[in-house]
């Protein structure tokens, strides 16, 4: 096979990411277009709000974030909610990764029962709305397990996102050349060691970008747990809006906070990816 080598190298070399801005060339034209688009969007929003006679009262927002009185710093309801949001997403994220990996491995296993269990879970979790799953777990499963609403929320989110994560892992695993399995097996490694040392280290590098997207979905989906009255950030926002009618100010504020967290996360993963790519 004459093209074998190049084919192999191609499979193993990740696609290089294009830098957003080339350091040698400042794309003034692109920047101007970008500013125009942003200005346009801002105009539409402001215009839309003023057409409705909306009365912007941004000055009322800071106290819902935090207050500084006599030198003592107190978190407002939005940031208190953010603490719960971070608590939920942090634990759900770990569980999502674990459930996703376990499901992917079951689906790829030789066990018919294992594959069937994974498949049923996957289809149920992916093909029903998260809100229904939240209610189901909170009202039906949580009383049996004896867990409170916070952990019911964490369980529901982890099971929902874990199904998507499992497909991401699975795609990463099956994308590796068959030769990696064969080389490992021919050296006498067990399937467990082959996964642990050969397959997963490579697969996880490949799936970092889609796994990050899934994590971002998780962070945003965590806002849905307000339906079972977990006082995370969105729930707090709903409460403030109901009380003050500062609809746009409050929702834009929490949108900004979500954006900040997710962009921060993406940047961390980009750094991680760059570190991995050094070897390739």
């Amino acid at each position: 096979m004459s093209n074998g080598t190049s084919e192999n190298t191609e499979l193993l070399t990740p696609v290089p990411s294009t830098p957003l801005l080339s350091p040698s060339r400042v794309p003034i034209k692109d920047l101007i277009i970008y500013l125009f688009v942003m200005a346009g969007i801002a105009f539409i929003i402001l215009r839309g709000a003023s057409e409705q006679g909306y009365n912007w009262q941004w000055y009322r927002i800071p106290k819902y974030l935090f207050t500084l009185e006599d030198g003592s710093f107190t978190l407002g309801p939005l940031l208190e909610g953010l603490k719960i949001t971070l608590h939920i997403t942090w634990i759900s994220m770990i569980l999502t990764y674990l459930i996703g990996l376990a499901t992917a491995l079951l689906r790829l296993s030789d066990s018919i029962v294992g594959r069937a269990v994974a498949r049923v879970y996957l289809e149920l979790a992916r093909n029903t709305p998260l809100i229904v799953q939240l209610f189901f777990i909170y009202f039906v499963v949580a009383p049996v397990l004896g867990i409170d609403r916070l952990y019911a929320a964490i369980l529901a989110l982890s099971l929902f996102e874990g199904a998507y994560a499992s497909e991401i892992y699975r795609a990463g695993i099956v994308s590796l050349p068959k030769g990696q399995w064969e080389a490992s097996h021919s050296l006498g490694l067990t399937t467990f060691d082959t996964y642990r040392k050969v397959i997963l280290p490579q697969a996880i590098r490949r799936v970092l970008p889609p796994l990050t997207s899934q994590t971002i979905s998780l962070i945003k989906d965590s806002s849905l747990v307000s339906v079972i009255a977990v006082y995370e950030m969105t729930m707090q926002a709903n409460a403030i809006v109901a009380e003050t009618f500062l609809t746009f100010e409050v929702y834009f504020t929490i949108a900004g906070i979500y954006l900040f967290i997710t962009v921060f996360l993406s940047q961390c993963v980009s750094l991680l990816e760059r570190k991995f790519k050094v070897h390739n």
Binding site: Q180, A183, H185, V198, Q202, H279
Partner: peptide
């Protein structure tokens, strides 16, 4: 497998 070494056409080294 432990006692039988195998060398493949496409090397199959572990790239990581």
């Amino acid at each position: 497998r432990r006692d039988m070494g195998m060398v493949f056409q496409l090397f199959n080294l572990f790239p990581h």
